[in-house]
């Protein structure tokens, strides 16, 4: 009985610590565990790739994949769909938009439908980050 109590207390404490360690993303207010800064130059480079491409997220984590689709919406939006090879086939979708003021904005996400997690590209103070979060906050039923 004491062992069960100890396990339960330990689990509760761990849950509380994990929950309190979660941050909230900006500006979407999505809880996340990890954030990885990615330069706009690295993102831009993907849009000039022809087939196989790599995005370095951290010194130890990169996304490698093959461009499956490239779509142009008028002159202002280009969307890439990249099937990853080292992330269990998750799809990296990236859009590059030229806003009315001429600035360039990137949006994107990396996910595999029905997986527990996913990543979202967010921007804060002109810096881009991939945040790792629960997929239910990115794709909802």
């Amino acid at each position: 009985m004491n062992t069960l109590k100890t396990i339960f207390c330990g689990w509760s404490l761990l849950s509380v610590l994990l929950l309190s360690a979660q941050e909230k993303s900006f500006p979407q207010n999505i809880p996340f565990n990890t954030k990885m800064e990615v330069s706009s130059e690295s993102l831009e480079k993907l849009f000039h790739s022809t087939s196989v491409c790599t995005l370095q997220l951290t010194p130890s984590l990169s996304v490698t994949g093959t461009i499956q689709n490239r779509m142009e919406k008028g002159l202002s939006v280009t969307t890439l769909l990249i099937k990853t090879e080292n992330m269990q086939g998750a799809m990296l979708s990236l859009s590059r938009s030229i806003r009315q003021d001429g600035s360039i904005q990137y949006t994107g996400h990396l996910l595999k439908l029905h997986d527990a997690g996913g990543m979202l590209l967010v921007v804060k103070d002109k810096h881009y980050y991939f945040i790792r979060t629960e997929q239910k906050f990115l794709v909802a039923e």
């Binding site: 794709v139 909802a140 039923e141």
Partner: peptide
């Protein structure tokens, strides 16, 4: 997709794609 009444990408209204 699977057995669900619907699905969407949160915030996609402003994605532009």
């Amino acid at each position: 997709y699977g057995p669900a009444p619907g699905v969407s990408a949160v915030g996609s209204f402003v994605w532009g794609d």
